[in-house]
Amino acid sequence: MFRVAVVGDHGSGKTTFLGLLYAALVSSGSGKGDDLRFHVAYDSLDEITVLFQRLMSGGFPDSATKEGLHELRVELEMARSGHGVFSRLGSRNRGTGQAGTIHFSLPGSLDEASPGLHQGSTFGTGKWRDALDADALVMLADGTRLAAKGTDVKTGPMAAYDGRLEALFIAIQRWRSSGGREVLHPVFVLSKFDSVRPEVLKVANVEAKPPAVGKAGLRVAYAKALLDTNLPRTLALLQGPRGKKLRFAPPAFVFSRVTSEAEGPDRAERIKLRRTDGGGWEPDYSRDEYLAFLEHLARIASEAKD
C-alpha cells in the first residue's frame, strides 16, 4: 500500500483537494478512454460520495457539520503515458500500469494539532502516525495567503505554517532514522490558485497562469518563485543533506484551482460548474493538474512496489 498524507492549515483547501481528485478519478474512470481505472475501498465510500455530491452541485465542503473526509483508499491502474497532458513532471514516459492501493489520509489541520509538535513527539500516536509513515506528503500552500516577494520572510502570513511543516519533516526524519520507508515524495499543492493576489505574481515576475502540465522545468521554476518567499525553511530542509536513512525525492507541484462564485447576502460561496464534453456538469477546476498528479502518483507508487 502506498500512503499519501495530506496536510495543511485549517481552511487551506485539503478537503476540496481530495474531493476534486476523486472527481478527476470518476470522470476519467467513467470516460470514453480506457487509460485510467480505479476502485474505491468500501470503507471510504461513505465520506467521499457525500463530498462528491456536494461538489457536483456547486457546494464547497461543509466544515460546519460533522461530515468530513478522513481517508480515501483506492486501487489505481493507469495506462502507459507519453503524450499530451500525461507526459510531465520529469516523467520518464514509462508505462505506469498497476499502481496498487493508494491510501490518502487527512490527519487534521497542522495548526490545530501541534502542542507538542515542535518536539516532534506527539506525532507518534493517533492519526498523525499516517504522516510519519507516509510515502508521499502532500502539503497545501493556500494561494490566498501567499506573500509577495520582498516581504519580510519571518513575519509573512505563512511563516508559522513554514515552521510547522519543517517541524513535521524533522519529526519524520527522526521517526524513520531507525526504520520505515526510505524515500519520501514531497508534493506541494498551491491551492486556491484562482485567487492568488495579482501583485504576488507580478513581483515574483511570473505569468498569471502556471506553465502547462507537460513543462516540468518551467513549473518547478514557477513554483519556486512563489514558495521561496513563503516556505523557505521547508524548501531548504528538503534540499539539505539527507538524513541517516530517509531520502527526499524531488518535490512535485500541483496548481489547484476551482472557480468560485462569491457569496451573496443570502448565498454561501459556491463552486462554479461547467459543462463537460459529455453534456453533464463538473466543477470548473484545473482538471489537467489533477490528472497529472494522479499519473505522478501512479508512477511513484508502482516504482515503490518494485
Binding site: G29, S30, F38
Partner: peptide, 12 residues
C-alpha cells in the same frame, strides 16, 4: 458516473 466508474474498476 460513480456507478459506471466502479463497474469498470471492478477488474482492478
Amino acid at each position: 458516473p460513480q456507478t459506471l466508474s466502479q463497474i469498470r474498476g471492478g477488474k482492478v
